[in-house]
């Protein structure tokens, strides 16, 4: 059982253009995710949700505090080690369009493996089947709709069978039908044992969540 724990984390940014030079995007907080749960963080744009998620996912070092995966303090690792850790254990669905435009759908899905000289085409095909994009296997990203691109991004995040999946506004620019498809997919992923954290401003997300947090002006609350 791997618990993900944030201890007294805080993120501040240096901001030249504003009156005060230091801006706290996330105020000091603790946060825990249990294995196989789907956690949702809601809140207004600019409230610090994505910053918190990026700190938790190992791509944004907190100004203060620790992020622990089990007993491992991920920010104590060097860049190469942490990058490989992210590749093997963490899936990430970025907000907006995140396809690599020079790669086909199947190449995009296999990319996390390709980066480390591995190749699991069967796994990629299986994921395409699961998300209903098998027919788009060799299509290029510009040929895909927003919903298809998002499903491709989720498939890509799952190719390494990660223990944790982070999804940043995964339904941001989708219609209702595709929004439901994505929420149901994330729920199913959590049911299969992957720990899922979704950042969203969609109210409908609540009914798929095991735990819901709210984040406004850098303050995290239950």
């Amino acid at each position: 059982m791997m618990q993900i724990r944030a201890e007294q984390i805080k993120k501040e940014f240096y901001r030249k253009s504003k009156g005060t030079n230091i801006f706290a995007a996330v105020n000091t907080c603790d946060f825990t995710m249990e294995e196989g749960t789907l956690t949702v963080i809601k809140g207004r744009s600019g409230g610090g949700k994505s910053t918190l998620m990026n700190m938790l996912s190992g791509i944004l070092q907190p100004t203060e505090g620790k992020i622990l995966y089990g007993d491992v303090d991920i920010y104590s690792m060097k860049d190469k080690e942490l990058s490989e850790y992210r590749n093997r254990h963490i899936g990430y669905v970025p907000q907006g369009k995140s396809a690599i435009v020079s790669l086909s759908v199947i190449e995009n899905i296999m990319l996390p493996e390709i980066l480390y000289g591995e190749s699991n085409e069967d796994g990629a095909v299986e994921l395409m089947d699961r998300f209903g994009i098998t027919h788009l296997r060799d299509a290029m990203p510009e040929e895909l709709s927003g919903g298809e691109l998002r499903r491709m991004a989720i498939a890509r995040a799952l190719i390494r069978k990660p223990e944790v999946l982070f999804a940043d506004e995964p339904t941001g620019d989708l219609d209702d039908e595709n929004t439901v498809i994505v929420f149901e997919a994330l729920r199913e992923i959590a049911n299969n044992g992957t720990t899922v954290l979704m950042v969203t401003h969609e109210n409908d997300a609540e009914k798929y969540a095991d735990k819901i947090y709210r984040m406004d002006a850098g303050e995290l609350s239950d």
Partner: peptide, 16 residues
């Protein structure tokens, strides 16, 4: 920039 950030999120090190 976005493409490289996505690659980083997937586990590409700065060296990669």
């Amino acid at each position: 920039k976005k493409e490289f950030a996505v690659l980083r999120a997937m586990g590409a090190s700065r060296a990669k």
